[in-house]
């Protein structure tokens, strides 16, 4: 019999599912986390030595001190201990409460390679070093990738996750921030290491990147990506991307945060309907907001009702799962 997990796997494999999976409604996937502090909830340092400051109007903390101020510091800057026995403890605790027959288990890898690089070195420095100090940038990203790789391996080996969620914001509104050339030069080789570890162990790969990502989708597919999130509709041509890549890649998200935040229940219903019509044909679509956010309750209710109606989610699987973070807004 079909259940949310099996249905979701069909969608991920770009085969026609029985209904449009929507993890916040049907619980088809659950996300577990590792123990490294990637962002503090109060003012203080994360486990990599980046300082975060608290701001009530910015949705929590934001990074205000970047410790790697010179390219010479890249090589020996101390990184967190990824062999600590506690690394997978939070994930293991969460797993005990998850019905793994019905839910796919995703392990969250934390900040991505680009994000962690600019958190450590500062955005301006990092982007300027791409031209001035390419070796330092490569070394920094490779060192981060080694940590991220161990997180992936340990989530797979010790927790037995079915997939890994990588997050990294590469996109701006109209283009990749660093451009496809620098993405391919610096980020792609390290990201490939992380994807290879998943492929070797046979687990799914989800990649999050805000903003415009169209130019590198062929690269991501070639590297073995299964699911791309969030496909922000403001920055991407959804129909074009679905028609060009929909056979090889599943998409998660695509319902505009702006609609969910600032619009009316009617408009939200219309948008959910539209995204399902654009993306769900033949499988390959996992319905979700394009960003986590404290949306108005009435709007979330409208999203849920539309997901059930237009996604045709069967009665027995209409649960209520918290909106899981697709990204933390910095």
């Amino acid at each position: 019999m079909m259940n949310p997990k099996k249905n979701l796997i069909k969608a991920i494999r770009c085969e026609e599912p029985e209904w449009v999976p929507c993890p916040t409604v049907d619980g088809s996937w659950r996300v577990v986390f590792h123990s490294l502090v990637e962002r503090t909830s109060e003012a203080g340092f994360d486990d990599w030595g980046v300082h975060w400051k608290l701001s009530d109007r910015a949705g929590g903390t934001y990074p205000d001190k970047h410790p790697i101020i010179k390219p010479e510091m890249v090589k020996n800057f101390p990184f967190p201990d990824v062999e600590t026995p506690n690394l997978t403890k939070p994930a293991l605790e969460m797993v005990s409460e998850i019905d793994r027959d019905k839910s796919l288990l995703l392990g969250d890898n934390g900040w991505g390679i680009f994000e962690r690089s600019w958190l450590l070195a500062g955005m301006d420095n990092l982007l300027i070093w791409m031209s001035d100090e390419p070796q330092a940038v490569s070394t920094l990203m490779h060192r981060i990738a080694r940590v991220k790789l161990r997180i992936t391996e340990r989530l797979i080996d010790e927790v037995g996750v079915d997939g890994i969620r990588y997050g990294d914001d590469w996109g701006g509104e109209k283009a990749l921030m660093m451009g496809p050339h620098f993405w391919r030069k610096f980020i792609k080789p390290q990201q490939r290491l992380l994807y290879d570890a998943c492929k070797k162990k046979g687990v799914f790969i989800l990649q999050h990147s805000d903003g415009h990502t169209e130019e590198i989708i062929p690269d991501l597919i070639e590297m073995g990506l299964n699911i791309l999130n969030p496909l922000q509709p403001e920055c991407n041509n959804i129909e074009k991307i679905k028609s060009e890549f929909g056979k090889d890649l599943a998409f998660h998200g695509a319902v505009s945060s702006r609609t969910l935040d600032k619009s009316t229940p009617e408009k939200i219903t219309q948008e959910v309907k539209l995204r399902i019509s654009q993306l769900a044909q033949g499988g390959g679509y996992i319905l979700a907001p394009a960003h986590s956010f404290p949306y108005p309750a009435s709007n979330l209710q409208a999203f849920r009702a539309a997901a059930i109606e237009y996604g045709k989610i069967p009665k027995e699987w209409r649960g209520k799962f918290e909106v899981q973070k697709t990204d933390v807004e910095v």
Partner: peptide
């Protein structure tokens, strides 16, 4: 025109 990205802008501005 998406021929230059943020890194190129930064070094030009410098």
């Amino acid at each position: 025109a998406n021929e230059f990205y943020v890194p190129e802008m930064l070094i030009a501005a410098r």
